[in-house]
Design a protein around this nucleic acid. Structure first.
Lengths: 116, 116
DNA sequence: TGAACATGTGAACAGCCATTCAGGCGTCCC
DNA sequence: GGGACGCCTGAATGGCTGTTCACATGTTCA
C-alpha cells in the first residue's frame, strides 16, 4: 500500500521486496557457481556439488532455495535429480552483473575512489 | 585465471565473487528503494532518506556501499550531495529482477510447487 | 564569528544466513 | 531381500550485515 502514500514510487513495495529476495539468492558465490554450471545444461546434484566444490548437502540446500523462487527447475529420473535454469531472466541477471563487475573490476570494494 | 583449471567454468571465479557482491548490494529492500528513486533522476541524501523512510545516517551508509561498487555516482554542490545511478547495468538488473518477481509472484517463498 | 544545516563516519548490537553434522527416505543392483 | 547409492531434511553454530546512536566535518547564512 504505497501507491498513494505521498511519495512517487514507480514500483510496488511488494515487487521491490520480492526482487530483493531474488537478489539475495544470487548474492552467494556458491549458488552463483551452481547457476553458472547450469548455463551449460542440466546436471544432477552430485555433478553440481563436485563442480562447485561444495558438499552435496549444502548443494541440496542451495537448490532448495533456488527452487522455491523458481530460479531453477528439477526433473526427476529414478534416484537422480536433474536441475536446469527455470527461465532466461536468471541468465540475463548473471550476464549483466558479470558485465558490471568486469567493467568496474579495477577497484576493490572498501576502496572508495578518492579522486575527483 | 581459472579458464583452464580442469573444471569447465565459463566465467572467472573472480568475476563470480564480484558479481555476488553486487547482488548482495541489491539484496536489500532499503537500498533497492534508493535505486528505484534514483531511476527518476538524481536526489540528495535528505530526499532519499525521506523518500525511502530510512534514517539519514542509514541512507548515508547505504550510499557509501553503493558508491564503493560504482553502482551510484555522487555530485557535490556546497553542503549537498546529489546521487544518481552510475550506469545502465543497475537499471537493467532492477528491471529483470522485477520482471522475474512479477512472473513468479503467484507463489510465496517456502512454498514449493508440488505439482509436476 | 557563531549557530544551524547537510552529510559522513565509527562502534555496538541484534537478526539473519551459510555451513556442517547426523540421519532419513526412496531407488537401483546383486 | 539386502545393501549401496543418490538425494533430501532438520537442527546447531559461527560469521556476516543492517540498523542505530553519538559524534565529527564542512558549509551556508545572519
Amino acid at each position: 500500500m504505497n501507491s498513494h502514500s505521498g511519495v512517487p514510487l514507480a514500483v510496488s513495495d511488494r515487487g521491490l521486496v520480492d526482487a530483493a529476495e531474488v537478489f539475495g539468492l544470487l548474492a552467494d558465490p556458491g549458488r552463483l557457481r551452481l547457476l553458472a554450471m547450469l548455463r551449460h545444461g542440466e546436471a544432477n546434484v552430485g555433478e553440481l556439488a563436485a563442480g562447485t566444490g561444495a558438499s552435496e548437502s549444502g548443494t541440496s540446500h542451495a537448490l532448495r532455495l533456488l527452487r522455491a523462487h523458481q530460479v531453477v527447475r528439477v526433473r526427476r529420473q529414478g534416484r537422480m535429480a536433474f536441475y536446469s535454469l527455470a527461465d532466461a531472466h536468471v541468465e540475463l541477471l548473471l550476464q549483466t552483473a558479470l558485465a558490471h563487475a568486469e567493467h568496474s573490476e579495477l577497484n576493490h570494494p572498501e576502496r572508495e575512489a578518492a579522486s575527483a
